[in-house]
């Protein structure tokens, strides 16, 4: 009885200590550890916010089995950069004007942040942002991907995104006919 009580107290103390820390440790699928600002993680990721509030953050590294180390490094990098960046006036004003949250143009540093990524890294980051419920990072990465699609033909898009064409010749011709205006430059 006494022992149990003592163990409970120890647990309690550990939790308090954890709550006092201002970073959380995240562990990628391949076992690498990353430290990220707790405030930024909670603000930018609905999933991490839930885990922090629910006390399911592990001091020795919270397992994120769905995310590889490269993508997680980018996530953490983004969170830390975001924590340091001063939000522009545009960001503040647009965040209160609409509750449907229209897409806000990426900030200069966000643009640079995604521009330096390889295609694979970008796609992994999109998935990680989606998994972690990071709306802003998802917006920024989706914006980058959409930029990569603009002005391209179906063939070029398939090449960039490494997608297999599963249409027959006839189906393709039909699609072209349906929206013929999109395929002429007059």
């Amino acid at each position: 009885m006494e022992v149990d009580k003592g163990k409970g107290e120890a647990e309690e103390t550990r939790k308090v200590a954890e709550a006092d820390r201002d970073t959380v440790t995240l562990k990628s699928s391949d076992g690498k550890l990353f430290e990220v600002s707790k405030e930024a993680a909670a603000r930018l990721s609905t999933v991490l916010a839930g885990m922090i509030a629910g006390g399911s953050i592990d001091d020795n590294g919270t397992d994120l089995k769905q995310i590889g180390s490269e993508a997680l490094e980018n996530v953490v990098d983004y969170c830390n950069k975001h924590a340091n960046s001063i939000p522009s006036a545009a960001l503040i004003s647009s965040s209160i004007s609409f509750n449907t949250a229209p897409f806000k143009e990426p900030e200069e540093w966000e643009r640079k942040f995604v521009d330096r990524l390889s295609h694979d890294a970008l796609f992994d980051l999109v998935e990680a942002a989606n998994f972690l419920g990071m709306e802003r990072l998802l917006d920024v990465t989706c914006h980058k991907i959409s930029e990569m699609m603009k002005g391209k033909s179906p063939d070029q898009i398939r090449e960039v995104f490494n997608i297999k064409n599963d249409y027959t010749k006839e189906e393709l011709e039909e699609i072209r006919q349906e929206l013929a205006w999109a395929f002429y430059d007059d």
Partner: peptide, 15 residues
């Protein structure tokens, strides 16, 4: 996020 012309192209990418 795409304009109509790009959307039309995307319809032709795959099913």
């Amino acid at each position: 996020l795409l304009p109509p012309r790009s959307l039309a192209a995307c319809r032709g990418v795959c099913k």
